[in-house]
Design a protein around this nucleic acid. Structure first.
Lengths: 339, 339
DNA sequence: CTGTTAGCGCTTTCAG
DNA sequence: CTGAAAGCGCTAACAG
């Protein structure tokens, strides 16, 4: 039957056996040539290479993984693909792993646990050699499956004494406390918060509010952006704060640099001066923080280091080396002009 | 030997055979229960389900893929993981595919062809059922391998009459031309560009410059940001333009909303009025474009639709349905306040 | 509705 | 240095 392109190409998937035939050796030798070239004679190696070029052979990693029980795949689950805070360390993490022969299977979980559970199972079915998870709160089912998988698991961007396996992150409550103390020390008697709908942001916010209230004896109003942080959401939240509370002077701790930037834009549009009338603190130290006007005071976490540490912990564990299981990266308040 | 946790868990990977034994059926029936539950008796199904729960069985998709020659995996290559322009349609694309039982293996290529080639080979070794590529320029070797793979391939974010297989995007030169005409019609006699180091951005820039020069008889200076677009790079480029050319009045076409935003910040910091002194046009219509001050005039491409179309084209092709191979999504100039 | 028989394309011993 | 044999855990016909 004339099926055009298809019956030719689809069936034409070259195997090691094909390459071997062309090179005058068996399939096993081809396999060896690829994974242990030192165990194959120079001459054979050349003939095999020629055969590979001639056929356009691409090894079948699926078969390889099944036979060797090593997939060279590392799964990674992050809350959002469009949030630079997460993708920036993923870029580092992937890169580091790639250089060591691993590929990263990346998925977005959203911020709810249910979809994380399903994703974990799907990912485990690909038999990854290791797994990265964002955050430390996972369902019992997930923990059980992860443990049953018997692979290294890194939990990042938060910290706990009882990680599933490895943990690289920092303490969100401590960050909230630190900002409260920073702002009080700067002389602010009033403060408010702008917070996105994400568990860790809420933890920072409540730690901040609790501590600032103690220090100043003043309540800390919060404007929840009710979703993902963005410049638009920050503007809206700032507007809400001013329109619906008597907050006119003080400092605002935002759960993200994005909403902080939005807050600044809104304030300026309304004629407020930043930081003289209202000071703004962000979170995340995104690349633009230093470039906006006024430059944004924010909480920085070394995401590059996080990506590296997460990757090298996994790699070390994979190679059977002893590793530290909990890394507290800490954070730093970067004082710039906005607060 | 006492090896603690390990010798217990690692070996304990449950197989379909194990589940079957527990449920009093063979492995095949377990397989069927999972993929064709309607072909298995209600009672057996229940026993198998119980056995699965009891054992914590997670199917081995690697073995499944090898046997069925379907991996349910779709590879996707994008230039940058941290650029929302790309990740936003990836989120849509992944989501749509996931809902149809596919998982997306996502990698970052950077902006150079060499690393793309290597990545394509690595990805193909996992035997994905389809592949998404950003852009239309790929090496001969890559094209050959892709064609040899015999799978659907979608090229996105650009357009060509001769796609490898499927193409969903828009014409970058046309966008540059359109902006030139828009700005001329607005009465501008002078224009400049701020461009990042990426082939498509350069194509928009040169189309813009060429057309604007024809229309206005004035040369169009360019400030190359020499890397990735960012607010900081935009500020620096704008500063450079003002400090090193006699450009003081007119319009600036930026290759990204990010650099456009940076340009605006720089201009305001220097006391220029936007758009009265200098007008700014961005590219991408990122979410913040409408929220900054002044709201950014920019070129919008429907990224959500792009993600959907790319996914559904792949899906349709995978199901053997006839599809349109080239989709021109077009673009739209969104007139806001900055130009 | 369930079981049997063959592989999928590799890696891993073990021989030579 | 090379080959033969035996799977990895599943799916795909084919029987019954």
């Amino acid at each position: 039957m004339a099926d055009g392109i298809f019956n030719k190409k689809v069936t034409s998937r070259v195997t090691m056996a094909d390459v071997g035939r062309l090179a005058g050796v068996t399939q096993v030798t081809v396999s060896r040539a690829l994974s242990h070239p030192d165990k194959v004679s120079k001459d054979t190696l050349r003939r095999i290479q020629d055969a590979i070029d001639a056929t356009g052979f691409v090894p079948n990693a699926v078969a390889g993984a099944l036979a060797s029980k090593r997939s060279n795949l590392v799964s990674a689950l992050i809350p959002s693909l469009t949030n630079v805070v997460y993708t920036s360390f993923m870029a580092t993490f992937s890169d580091h792993l790639r250089q060591n022969g691993y590929q990263v299977l990346l998925s977005e979980t959203g911020f709810n646990t249910a979809s994380e559970d399903a994703l974990i199972a799907t990912h485990l079915s690909r038999r990854p050699d290791a797994m990265l998870l964002t955050g430390i709160h996972h369902s019992d089912k997930a923990r059980k499956q992860l443990q049953g998988a018997g692979i290294p698991v890194v939990e990042i961007w938060d910290i706990t004494d009882e990680p599933i396996d490895i943990c690289v992150g920092f303490n969100h409550s401590a960050a909230g406390h630190a900002v409260a103390e920073y702002l009080k020390a700067k002389g602010h008697a009033f403060a408010a918060t702008i917070t996105a709908d994400d568990e860790r942001a809420l933890r920072r916010q409540s730690a901040f509010a609790e501590r600032f209230t103690v220090l100043s004896q003043n309540a800390v109003p919060d404007a929840n952006t009710g979703g993902t942080a963005s410049i638009g959401a920050g503007r809206a939240a700032m507007a809400h704060l001013i329109d619906h509370s008597d907050f006119r002077k003080g400092a605002v701790f935002c759960s993200s640099d994005l909403s902080a930037h939005g807050a600044i834009i809104e304030l300026r549009a309304r004629g407020f001066r930043v930081p003289q009338d209202i000071a703004i603190v962000g979170f995340g130290d995104q690349d633009f923080a230093r470039d906006i006007d006024p430059a944004l005071t924010t909480v920085a976490v070394d995401r590059l280091r996080l990506g590296h540490l997460a990757a090298s912990s996994v790699l070390d564990k994979l190679m059977g080396q002893p590793i530290k299981s909990v890394h507290d990266l800490g954070f730093k308040i970067l004082t710039r002009l906005s607060a």
